[in-house]
Design a protein around this nucleic acid. Structure first.
Length: 467
RNA sequence: GUAGGCAUAGCUCAGCUGGUUAGAGCAUCGGAUUGUGAUUCCGAAGGCCGUGGGUUCGAGCCCCAUUGCUUACCCCA
């Protein structure tokens, strides 16, 4: 019989006890923050019908969907002619389900299916894994968690402001301090496109702009030239993007530039910008000020932020951790018509998502995990011999009854092994009662980090371990 | 889909232009020490050098193929 080496699918990972404990710490901070802001939990199935998933993420997205083969004789509906016509023809006949690709589309499906019973605006958060048949690389997996919070059914920019607040709350909560929340607005990008004279494709411009911090000005110019933008437009673009100054100053400078370019007014009313994007961004700032937000130094209006080709239509967000070399750890934005694909038009939503894996990497690199998040056992009871091991069981019961996670070492091994076990598992306390202690009806409690030992009565042990 | 890199002990890796018996650190196990770990010392065990072919008197090393892992690009969290 040949023994095969075990393995796990490419792009997936096992999480050992220490890693799970630290991931749960991050999940906990995120979950508490979402709930603190009035978001309710939602979970949706791992499997969705492919009809729900396909066509929502573009052609490339469809390629990256994991499809699940139908149960039973999955070939029963496939004719030889179908195979001749290729994958496209065969696929719908052999697979009708797929693994969820993100949390936003299942959320939209849920909202549409339950529109009659939901109270709008509906605020939900969702922390679940998603799957993508992508080619794995650093910081990129085929199975990973998303932590989404979205509101549907309101246009209020208070939601956008609260997203900024939640982002700060979470990052502060896990000890990350050197970060920048970047905010922009699809309307601003559209205005920039119009100011350049509307040449080329709007989406090409956004994709190119988004790469600015990655490939630099020359790279963007080159890409724009390839996509049919004139050097004149390209030069003007960088004039607009070079806007510096505070959040408010940038808004004003762009407003002046758009007026100078003679862009048509998009909003009515006498106060504020005539352009929706700039006006929304100002409104978000006003909400934050009224709230008493104090971390404006962490909030940057970045007109180069574009976030790919996704469905965003209003404000867009991204978080950059400044002292760690890693991509964004969070992003989001507003999308009009979230539920349109499922037949419910005119519902606007805004939301954002945290990338737990990247947050984890940041905390690890900066050594920000709390020290004792790694184990669950708080007290190991030493097993001296068969008889002592049995007689100490009531003590174990009392430890647990007092809420102290405890275990009795499984066999009466040499003390070296028992202490080593406690040490390697990260158990902070070891409790022992050998013949000497038993004679006095006392226990010896050892603090594993200091090495300090104390002779105590059981009540004192319990109170010491619960404090 | 495009282009690279890597594959040697449980883990991280050495291994010279091809040349006797393939090494180290960590981890494991045993002992020094029958009541004390992280942090002492001594010892042991551990290998079809990813797989299959080829070149050669001789291959861990060179060539071809194959599988797995990995990095960058496209795209994305």
């Amino acid at each position: 019989m040949s023994i095969q080496k075990p393995s796990i699918p490419k792009g997936t990972r096992d999480f050992g006890p220490a890693v799970v404990a630290r991931r749960n710490y991050i999940f906990g901070v995120i979950r508490r923050t979402f709930e603190l802001f009035g978001y309710a939990p939602l979970e949706t199935p791992t499997l969705e019908n492919l009809s729900v998933l396909t066509g929502k993420y573009g052609d490339e997205g469809d390629q990256l969907l994991f499809k699940v083969l139908n149960s039973g004789d999955f070939l029963k509906d496939v004719a030889p002619d179908d195979i001749a016509e290729g994958t496209r023809k065969v696929l719908p006949k052999i697979a009708e389900k797929g693994l969820r690709y993100d949390l936003t589309v299942p959320f939209a499906r849920y909202v549409v299916m339950n529109r009659g019973t939901l109270t709008f605006p509906f605020k939900r958060y969702q922390i679940q894994p998603v799957w993508r048949a992508d080619r794995p690389q650093r910081g990129r997996y085929r199975e990973f968690y998303q932590c989404d919070a979205d509101v549907v059914g309101t246009d209020s920019l208070l939601c956008e402001a609260e997203i900024v607040l939640m982002m700060c709350e979470v990052l502060n909560g896990i000890g990350l301090t050197d970060f920048t929340i970047k905010i922009n607005h699809r309307g601003v990008l559209r205005n920039i496109y119009q100011a350049l004279g509307s040449e080329g494709k709007e989406s090409d411009l956004f994709v190119a702009i988004d790469k600015l911090d990655k490939i630099g000005r020359e790279g963007v110019e080159k890409e724009l030239a390839e996509r049919g933008f004139s050097t004149q437009a390209s030069a003007y673009l960088f004039e607009l993007l070079a806007t510096s100054g505070s959040y408010g100053e940038k808004l004003e400078k762009l407003d002046a530039a758009f007026q100078k370019a003679d862009l048509p007014s998009e909003t009515e009313g006498s106060d504020g910008s005539a352009y929706k994007g700039l006006r929304d961004l100002r409104e978000v700032q006003n909400y934050l000020t009224s709230f008493g937000f104090t971390q404006f130094d962490k909030l940057e209006f970045d007109p180069t932020l574009a976030r790919g080709l996704s469905y965003y239509t209003g404000c867009i967000f991204e978080i950059k951790i400044n002292n760690v070399k890693i991509g964004s750890v969070s992003g989001g934005g507003r999308y009009d018509n979230l539920t349109g694909a499922f037949g419910l038009a005119g519902v606007s939503g805004v939301g954002f998502s945290f990338g737990v894996d990247r947050l984890y990497d940041c905390l690890e690199e900066l050594n920000l995990f709390p020290p004792n998040a790694a184990t669950t056992t708080r007290c190991l009871v030493v097993n001296f011999d068969e008889e002592a091991g049995r007689s100490v069981l009531p003590v174990l019961r009392q430890l647990r009854a007092a809420g102290i996670p405890s275990e009795l070492y499984h066999t009466p091994d040499k003390l070296v092994k028992q202490f080593k076990y406690a040490d390697q598992k990260g158990v902070p306390y070891v409790l022992l009662q050998g013949s000497e202690e038993r004679a006095q009806n006392l226990f010896k409690l050892k603090n594993m980090s200091t090495g300090h030992e104390q002779l105590l009565a059981l009540d004192d042990v319990l109170s010491k371990l619960t404090q």
